[in-house]
Design a protein around this nucleic acid. Sequence first.
DNA 1: TTATATTTTTAGACTCATCTAAACCTTATC
DNA 2: GATAAGGTTTAGATGAGTCTAAAAATATAA
Lengths: 220, 220
Amino acid sequence: MNTLSFTEENYLKSIYHLSEGGVKEVSTNAIADDLQTKAASVTDMIKKLANKEVINYKKYKGVNVSPTGKMAALQVIRKHRLWEVFLVEKMKFNWDQVHEVAEQLEHIKSPLLIQRLDEFLGYPKNDPHGDPIPDEHGEFNSKPQISLSEAELHHEGILMSVKDTSTPFLQYLDKIGAYIGAKIKIMDRVVFDGSHEILLDNKRTLFVSKEVAQNILISE
Amino acid sequence: MNTLSFTEENYLKSIYHLSEGGVKEVSTNAIADDLQTKAASVTDMIKKLANKEVINYKKYKGVNVSPTGKMAALQVIRKHRLWEVFLVEKMKFNWDQVHEVAEQLEHIKSPLLIQRLDEFLGYPKNDPHGDPIPDEHGEFNSKPQISLSEAELHHEGILMSVKDTSTPFLQYLDKIGAYIGAKIKIMDRVVFDGSHEILLDNKRTLFVSKEVAQNILISE
DNA sequence: TTATATTTTTAGACTCATCTAAACCTTATC
DNA sequence: GATAAGGTTTAGATGAGTCTAAAAATATAA
């Protein structure tokens, strides 16, 4: 497999995410969309990645990650999430400020640094958005969770993670007082627009839109 | 000036270092040698850098950094040295292990991160090799220092910094027990091979070669 | 001062990652 | 099962950074 370039790592990570752990076939357009590039560029790159045997590729049939590719992707994800923890815990970044910088830091090549960083941070299990951090073997345990929009009415759970990690969404959550670890109970669901009435930390009830509900994951 | 690419930053840093702060003219070959590349590649790149007005360039006459280029170079150097401090102080790296990783980290783009890192480290004035860390305006005070090989016989001073930061040299210093802050007195100088007899921390006398003496800087 | 050696630049080619435009497959629809 | 619509791949070009080989300029030396 050799080493992957900066760009190759980004493609691989995108494919891994889009395939939800290596099951589904991922389309050229989906990758292009995710990486803000053009389909033709994606075709070129997936040929390279297929040659390096980190993905499986059949013309016109989409791609998915191979076992070695999955490991490589998980290492990049591990680095990304550890750096995010570092930025929030040690550099006093807000959780909506970390993504862009972590995108750069995740490509730093130094196994020793990652090992020491992990130790320095106290072997964290989750990043600031609640996503699990794989260990050096790519292992991680994801606790069962369900989106607010899919959970049953009157279900109560802990805010475990968020699907969307964009600045506007995270700033919105800050504004309404939602955070990883908060207690959320679904009080009502509005049929008209799919919005949700929720009880936050047994203190306040408020309404969130369908879009917001889909991006909040709580414990089952 | 716009932003500089990864590679452009490396060239600029090299030119800055080779010109001892932007004074002397630097030759194409010197840069090629420093960056382990070919003279032809250097010629291409210095044209680009001259177009961006970070260096002054006259064909066949060498280059030196412009005021804007000097500032840009100092920012990269600032980042490099702050990361080195981080690696040694927080990540428990040895001083001979930091260079390669800092070469990568110095190109991370995030003014906020550097500001917070500086604060986190307690606004250090020097990196693990004794080199001064410029502040955000590119200012730094370098205390007067002189190489062991140039100082007067029987001169005594503190080991302030090292010119060579390669792993073999630093490991050699570890071995003989020399470190930044150590007290060194020049006991004798051997005419035959230019080697030096020194007294280290008032404890041990030992001989170091001419090459080693040239790379150790002590207070005047 | 002319010849020689060295340094620097140019010319042309290569790789990587990207693009547009056109050609090509696959799928959905009637 | 023909056709339209959409997705995917190829062809050819571009820019960044690099290289080798050859030409041009400068420096050195007899």
